[in-house]
Write a protein that binds this DNA or RNA. Structure first.
Length: 568
RNA sequence: UGGGACGUCGUCUAACGGUAAGACUGCAGACUCUGGAUCUGCGUAUCGGGGUUCGAAUCCCUGCGUCCCAGCCA
């Protein structure tokens, strides 16, 4: 995994305890072998990061191995596009599968042979019931199912029919191969589950070689077995499948890994369902799978989150079997923690307000020294040009300041970061609209660099950019994609999209950046001082930089102001 | 109403028969050339009821609540 925060202790969890115990009892001859088994039918999201961290993390911690295996048993949903993105994402998160990149489809021949073996053992049969009929025969949660009328075919007949299924003699859905387990089992998965279905579809890897494809249950455990997996870790909803996982392996008499289930990740204000995320993409609610508002790994990367932050987050949330929901704030905490100590600071003005310093010489430019990262002395300093006309944040000036507002207002003095102390003398407004066009200030030459030799204090330090030297940019500011804590809670008869936050994206143009940002490479991360963490977007061009706001800084004033407005 | 699983601060996780701990959030304060960062302090929890035990979050019984399962999806 990516290097975790050294201060973050590797939290224990029940899966880790099982692995430790198995090591102690030498259950697998000292081996630890896990796997991450995504289905290539969508993009990976932050929930998968938890699983990746668990599986690869366990292998790394105990000197074991972790495979990357695509669970590609359903050709109708799976695509190479997804395979490629998944490989990229797992790698970005730090997962190292070495040379062990596998596909369930690698095992189709072996799986087919095993199916024949089960037929010969009279443990499987070809069933002519259609989907609807199978459902009816299955019974319900409270009533047992009935046996298929085709259950007692002879081994020879089954062998023949299965062979003809494989040869393509039958239409999709016409027949299935089913396991003979127990139609009266209280566990629906054991009521003669389908092993193979007929699907005349091109597979992304095996092409048209097959027209029958194994079901997940008949493929997963055996794939684990073939790969020598010791601990097959999956999510809670597969708990009911474990008896079947075990049954197939036992009937086949092959090496038997153990399946362990843990709770999938839930995050507040976030949806982690592939189906619903697909809907958002298809309906154009977001701008694709990598829209920075999405919880996909590719989006998170584009937005500026780091793999290290994700790893620390995954370590912190732990692994259990409790179904709960992690507060988004926790994720954001780990992102800020990581970005704070590694990312260079820079000055940028999102919504510019022109400031003219009346007593500053017309054509003078001074190069001010600015610290790149106060958390990292090795990051050094840079020069920032200062001149008579600057931009400051509109929000940093109030003509009529509310209580506790420390920033610039008429007659008040503030410090320009690394610049000078300035005092607001007057306000220039548009006569018609009343809009503030610019403010006129005076500076104190004795405060160069922001230091007052006389020990004078100001209540506030604000950021600025020299107008003549500024670079134009666009900033994309994000809020939660969903307006409610639990986007899955949908009012009767409505779509989950009603929970979408209409303000999740705000595009701000005309932003002014300090010149050191010129040519910033896509993916490079910065802290725009006092505003937040930003990441250069691939949409950037040499003419116009585009930045995504990864996350805002903690905003104490914003809180105070909100509270004040709440009272008023 | 069948089966499987799970209930510990607001949230997540720990405590493995022996003082209920940590992180996040929240609130208050200190410090600060980012109202950032950092530091300090405060607060709130064992689902209910019975039992076993010197002692129970932990073991037993019982009730309640939540989640998952009736795809030829994974």
């Amino acid at each position: 995994m990516s290097t975790p925060n050294p201060e973050t202790p590797a939290a224990s969890n029940f899966v880790r305890e099982i692995v430790k115990q198995d090591l102690q009892t030498n259950k697998y001859q000292g081996r630890v072998h896990t796997r991450f088994p995504p289905e290539p039918n969508g993009y990976l999201h932050i929930g998968h990061a938890k699983s990746i961290n668990l599986n690869f993390g366990l292998a790394a911690e105990f000197g074991g191995k972790c495979n990357l295996r695509f669970d590609d048993t359903n050709p109708s949903k799976e695509e190479t596009e997804y395979v490629d993105s998944i490989i990229e994402d797992v790698r970005w998160l730090g997962g190292d599968w070495e040379d062990r990149l596998f596909y369930a489809s690698d095992y189709f021949d072996q799986l087919y042979a095993w199916a024949i073996e089960l037929i010969k053992k009279d443990k499987a049969f070809v069933c002519d019931l259609n989907a609807q009929q199978i459902r009816e025969y299955r019974g319900t949660l409270t009533e047992p199912g009935r046996e298929s009328p085709y259950r007692n075919r002879t081994v020879a007949e089954n062998l023949d029919l299965f062979e003809r299924m494989r040869k393509g003699e039958f239409a999709d859905g016409a027949r299935t191969l089913r396991a003979k387990v127990d139609m009266a089992s209280p566990n629906l998965n054991m009521r003669d589950p389908v092993m193979y279905r007929i699907l005349h579809a091109e597979h992304h890897r095996t092409g048209n070689k097959w027209c029958i494809y194994p079901m997940y249950d008949f493929a997963h455990g055996q794939s684990d077995s073939i790969e020598g997996v010791t601990h097959s870790i999956c999510t809670l909803e597969f708990e009911d499948h474990r008896p079947l996982y075990d049954w197939y392996l036992d009937q086949l008499g092959v090496y038997h890994p153990q399946q362990i289930e843990f709770d999938r990740l839930n995050l507040t204000y976030t949806l982690l369902s592939k189906r619903k995320l697909l809907t958002l993409v298809q309906e154009g609610r977001v701008n694709g799978w990598d829209d920075p508002r999405m919880p996909t790994i590719t989006s998170i990367r584009r937005r500026g989150y780091t793999p290290e932050a994700l790893t620390n987050f995954c370590k912190a949330i732990g692994v259990s079997k409790t179904n709960g929901s992690i507060e988004l704030a926790l994720l954001e905490h780990y992102v800020r923690e990581d970005l704070n100590r590694r990312v260079p600071r820079v000055m940028a003005v999102l919504r510019p307000l022109r400031v003219v310093i009346e007593n500053y010489p017309e054509n003078q430019v001074e190069e001010m020294d600015a610290v790149n990262n106060p958390e990292d002395a090795a990051a050094g300093t840079r020069k920032v040009p200062f001149s008579r006309v600057l931009y400051i944040e509109r929000d940093d000036f109030r003509e009529d300041p509310p209580k506790q507002y420390f920033r610039l207002s008429p007659g008040k003095e503030v410090r320009l970061r690394y610049g000078y102390f300035i005092k607001c003398a007057s306000v220039v407004k548009d006569e018609k609209t009343g809009e503030i066009l610019e403010i006129r200030c005076s500076y104190d030459p004795a405060t160069r660099g922001g230091n007052a030799l006389d020990g004078r204090k100001v209540k506030s330090t604000i950021h600025w950019v020299s107008a003549a030297h500024a670079i134009d940019a666009e900033a994309r500011l994000y809020e939660n994609l969903f307006a409610v804590e639990n986007p899955n809670a949908v009012p009767e008869g409505q779509e989950f999209t009603v929970n979408l936050n209409p303000n999740s994206l705000e595009v701000v143009t005309g932003c002014k950046l300090e010149p050191s940002l010129r040519g910033a490479a896509a993916g490079s991360r910065y802290q725009f001082e006092r505003l937040g963490y930003f990441c250069a977007d691939p949409d950037s061009t040499p003419e116009k930089l585009v930045f995504n706001r990864t996350l805002a800084l903690r905003d104490t004033w914003g809180k105070i102001e909100k509270a004040q407005q709440g009272k008023a």
